[in-house]
Write a protein that binds this DNA or RNA. Structure first.
Lengths: 247, 247
DNA sequence: ATTGACTCTCACGTTACGTGATAGCTTAAA
DNA sequence: TTTAAGCTATCACGTAACGTGAGAGTCAAT
């Protein structure tokens, strides 16, 4: 399929100027030129363009992209798998941002308080090293406080734990939004059970009882519902189901 | 909390130069200056910065951001809600991209075929009008072809229809991935039924029969399974359930 | 033959900072 | 108390990835 600039531009949703630019810098030179000097792009060019735009979307500078796709050892298959992974990571980041903003909304309503660091949780503005996330995390003091048994862990361990807990909260919150009745939540609840048993002794019954506390004790409810309104109730129910299924 | 440039920069993960820049253009002027001319930021400034970075992440140019947050009618609450919506839309887009790349992976493995347009589905590179998506969509010729009854529609109408159909395919595909047993799919199948009746006459029985064709006629199967392996079968079953429930 | 929609190549403009250069400030250690 | 490390400041030029005309040739249809 021979295509002109405009045709290509329209298909992929970029500007003609962008194609000119990519030609200029040798990133994507058209397959051929017409007698009158028009750029003629082939299907092959289009596939290359797809690769380019993928990498661009992932934040790579054009220079790097050029290196990557011109590398003789460039493996399209591997590249696609990599890109998929990066997109999935992105979605995680996005989920955290959404959680963060929902928390901020509650915060501005005066329902909860947030530390300065918390306000920026989920935001990873250091896009520099191409998504190679290596930033520090901040534990959730509030939760630490309500689970005193971990007092003899190191600060680091506590933070890691707090983050793990937050992850589970977030996971449950988005699961609930997407598919409230799905059984996937049971798997996550299991993770929750195992995590709790890292820091205390929870029998199945104790676990169920803890779930009940999530809705009865306001300190729990408040903390948990930061991650989504009604999450405490959702967890209580899921924990009850889990308990009943496992004995 | 009085903070210097570096402290703020480290907390939110941006560069000192960026803060200088924001000061230069009057986007974020520090609360105060020390006697020696050092910028001193307050908690308030930090919150403003949070807003700025949110909008930036959403693709707004700094100039617009300045207008927005300096607008006397600027409502933080509303803004947050808006940002939440935009983030959710983003997640949808991201999901489409992920679906697209997974499809591409299959494609390169030779498992399916893709049209040029399909290869770029889910990619919205026109970030220009600040996420106010108003780009054109391209219908799915293949599907159009297998549903010849719409020959007397305008090109535009056909494209809109094709896009509607694709949306439903995608919706079903992700529903199936997330919660195969959910009843939500029935609602989507209903949308499918109504859509089909816009372009032809489908009795409930014809609808059920059509579902059967999805798995029996390879032309259908191929097209549908592009949106997810096994989607054709999934749809056939759901269509059968729908039919049985509605007579 | 003309119009309207594309195409080309300069070439300067723009956004959002990066990257030194040079110089003053602060604080802890020698 | 000086000294060095680590911040801070203000120019000011550099850069990435195009945007935006300007001026001119091309193509398809009426």
């Amino acid at each position: 399929m021979a295509m002109t600039v405009k045709q290509v531009a329209d298909i992929v949703g970029i500007s003609v100027r962008t194609l000119h630019h990519y030609d200029e810098i040798g990133l994507l030179e058209p397959d051929a030129l017409s007698t009158s000097g028009y750029r003629i792009y082939s299907d092959n060019d289009l596939e290359k363009l797809q690769q380019i735009l993928f990498y661009k979307e992932l934040g790579f500078p054009l220079k790097k992209i050029k290196e990557i796709i011109n590398d003789p050892s460039f493996n399209r298959q591997e590249a696609l798998e990599l890109q998929r992974k990066m997109l999935l990571e992105r979605r995680l980041r996005l989920d955290k941002m959404i959680a963060s903003i929902e928390k901020t909304i509650q915060y501005t309503k005066g329902e909860i308080t947030m530390s300065n660091e918390e306000k920026f949780e989920g935001f990873d503005f250091s896009r520099n090293p191409y998504e190679q996330e290596a930033r520090e995390r901040w534990g959730d003091e509030a939760i630490d406080a309500s689970n005193q048994k971990i007092g003899n862990m190191t600060k680091k361990e506590q933070q890691a734990l707090g983050e793990e807990m937050n992850d589970i909260y977030r996971e449950l919150a988005s699961l609930r939004d997407l598919a409230p009745e799905a059984e996937q939540s049971q798997a996550v609840i299991e993770k929750w059970y195992l995590l709790l048993n890292k820091m205390g002794d929870y029998s199945l019954d104790a676990f169920k009882g803890l779930g009940q506390m999530y809705v009865e004790d306001e300190r729990f409810t408040k903390n948990i519902d930061q991650f989504g309104n009604g999450l405490a109730k959702f967890m209580r129910d899921a924990m009850a189901v889990y308990t009943d299924n496992h004995k």
